[in-house]
Design a protein around this nucleic acid. Structure first.
Lengths: 411, 411
DNA sequence: CTCTTTTTTTCGAGCCTCGAAAAAATACTG
DNA sequence: CAGTATTTTTTCGAGGCTCGAAAAAAAGAG
């Protein structure tokens, strides 16, 4: 069962609520905050004056929404950009990037770097990651002590506690405890996040109307990944980052997947699988890396004529459709965002995908399921990491100590 | 975002915590409750003396665990059986049962009845359900006003809010708002629960060691159903009861399922599917009802000789294995309880099932996944309904009013 | 310049939890 | 059998938190 509520938790939680309301709403007045949180004006007044005093919030004086109304004008509350900063590190295939983000969410410094992740030995890979972070800290413009959190995102499987990369397609290395490494190196709390989960987090912030309580973000790239939000919360597996949509079984004993098994969705819909089918290679052919440019050229050819390229995309759509259908049997249909280079070829994928879904339990709603596409995953992953890190800071700045004890579950 | 915590919520929640601790632990002393909830002894003392005064808890004097220790002996706190009562109604294929359960969880009255659910018209089906409940209320031994909740369980799909049956294999009727019907008829709050979810709830109470944070209950009967507990909480779909494991796609375009689609797991592992395969009928053959006795005879024949019967169970195991494998790709492996008549034939199913799982993303753990079997689902469903109803009562008795406002989700 | 309206702050009241100390209830000891 | 030690439970005052009501502040309207 979850633990009882102590008297001191009360303030802590309500402070959290106020900060979260401000981060979400932009420049809300105290009155608006009182309305959305359900707390009384007196309480909001007390909490926000504390937060301002502590330098967490700032009053953003007048102007803004031209006050045409009578009465005392509202004064907006905003996050103080200088309250603290966070750092994001995103490691993807052959590419490493880092960014420093202020408390209000603005990027204040960044650096990107190409490197050959696939062949790189373990130590070198870790070394590159720590080095790029170190260079940011050496930047004289940046006050080192202002960085309160590092969130690292990686393509691959991470553990539930967001401490380590367990497996990744971008390197042959496994089980790298990046969070511990970064914390040890820089003495700043760090987490290791799954790329697709961060995409989902970012979508939630980018378009809260559309991506709110339930939605799915699917990465269509070299591999197939998924970030899933259910009832407003990121869904993770019980041991790992979870949601290995790409490795649901599409055809038992079917095409060879990069993971070594057969018949996974990814073995039909990953870049290498589309490439393999478009070239009419065997379904057992070893998965090969395909560049984004090659994939775009492939899509162009598929649009031109009805040859094996188009058929390859059709097969990808079918695999994705049946996979989504099975998923929808479990969680009910939800809006889907397709992200990554093959999302730019979604026009080639969609017909077969919808046809497949229509044959599944999700089928009755197949027409109403809406798809969005976003070809570029990296900015999304970075945004997600930033929001995640800021979220942790929000929770920690106001909660000096006093964390819930690990309790048993509740009925 | 979720709503702020009011000062009065504090007591409400801590009262809930105490009641829940007592329901879970049996006869805990105040000291034990203080330990598990993390609240101070003074607080527990205050809350429990309130609860005793209100007739919700009782002090179960001494004896019990022979107090060999020095010092003042602990006095156990228990639920007062007379505090209130709940009623469960379970509707399954050709069978309707009702039970009255006291606040401590003991059955105090019950009635069961056979009826032909498949052919029964809508009004008659509803009429039978209300009539059996009415008969309980007419029992002079029962104080009508003591029943505070009705939980109805049904095989089939229910909506997220536990108000209505949307679809069920036991009748051709759809969208029956049983919760509203019972509330309207008897003026007592009611819910409409999915059978497999209730099985999962019951398992959690029966064996909290084994079935705690993450586990799966699978109903192997006429159809294939699933109840899923993740991170200690019942997992439901966003619109429906969710977890339609039986209708994940095993083989695209494959065998005909009772739901009208093709290739579902159920079309290979449901009773009718096993029967169809054992008789070497076409996979397109219309699903037919098979009695439990016939299924037991089939299993016996399969054990005797390696004929089509054994092959039918093998196919069922394969379908279940690949389905579980896909599920484990999404949620990580967890203990599984197999429930229902075909769980008694699990020895015939298990080899192929494990072989299939080994070929999937869950494969690396296939050996460590443990299966439990329970051939009789009805008692589980009833227990689950009872615990669910009592849980609601626990929440409502101490929370007179003051419910959280429907809020937006939190970061 | 005064009145009206709206936002924000102030202030006392009422709860709630906590820690410390007291009270209660039993086993151990000689 | 009386006194001591030990453990559980209750009591009591202190400190904090939120709330509602009223006051204060800051504008536009007339």
């Amino acid at each position: 069962m979850s633990v009882g509520i102590r008297h001191d938790d009360l303030r802590r939680r309500n402070r959290a609520m106020v900060i979260s309301a401000v981060r979400r709403a932009g420049q809300p007045s105290r009155t608006e905050i009182a309305a959305t949180t359900g707390l009384s004006h007196s309480t909001i007044s007390a909490i926000s004056s504390d937060l301002i005093q502590e330098g967490i919030l700032t009053e953003s004086k007048p102007s803004e929404t031209a006050s045409l109304k009578r009465g005392r004008p509202q004064v907006g509350l905003g996050l103080n950009p200088e309250a603290t900063a966070v750092m994001t590190v995103v490691l993807s295939l052959n590419f490493l990037s880092v960014a420093v983000i202020d408390y209000a969410g603005q990027v204040i410094a960044e650096e990107q770097r190409r490197l050959d992740t696939l062949t790189m030995p373990r130590d070198e890979l870790i070394g590159e990651c720590t080095a790029i972070v170190r260079r940011r800290f050496e930047d004289p413009d940046l006050d080192v002590r202002s960085v309160a959190r590092i969130a690292m995102g990686i393509q691959g499987i991470t553990d539930t506690h967001a401490r380590a990369m367990l497996w990744s397609p971008i390197t042959s290395q496994t089980d790298i405890p990046f969070a511990d490494i970064l914390e040890g190196e820089f003495g700043i709390p760090a987490t290791m996040e799954n790329d697709c989960n961060m995409m989902a987090v970012a979508l939630q912030w980018r378009d809260p109307e559309r991506y709110r309580d339930d939605f799915i973000a699917i990465l269509l790239s070299h591999g197939i990944g998924m970030g899933l939000v259910l009832k407003g919360e990121l869904f993770t597996g019980t041991h790992s980052s979870g949601g290995e949509f790409g490795h649901m079984i599409h055809r038992p004993g079917g095409a060879l997947c990069r993971c070594g098994r057969r018949g996974c969705v990814e073995a039909y819909a990953g870049n290498y699988a589309i490439w393999r089918n478009a070239r009419m290679m065997s379904e057992d052919a070893e998965p090969a890396d395909v560049g984004d440019a090659d994939m775009r050229a492939l899509a162009a050819r598929a649009r031109e004529s009805d040859g094996p390229e188009r058929e390859a995309y059709r097969k990808a759509g079918e695999a994705l459709g049946f996979g989504l259908g099975s998923l929808f049997a479990l969680i009910d249909p939800a809006p889907v965002a397709m992200v990554g280079v093959s999302a730019a070829a979604f026009d080639l994928i969609e017909p077969a995908l919808r046809e497949a879904i229509a044959q599944t339990a999700g089928g009755q709603h197949s027409k109403s399921i809406s798809f969005d596409t976003e070809p570029n995953e990296l900015p999304l992953i970075r945004e997600g990491c930033a929001m995640r890190a800021l979220g942790f800071v929000d929770q920690e700045i106001f909660a000096p100590g006093v964390q819930v004890k690990p309790g048993k579950h509740v009925a």
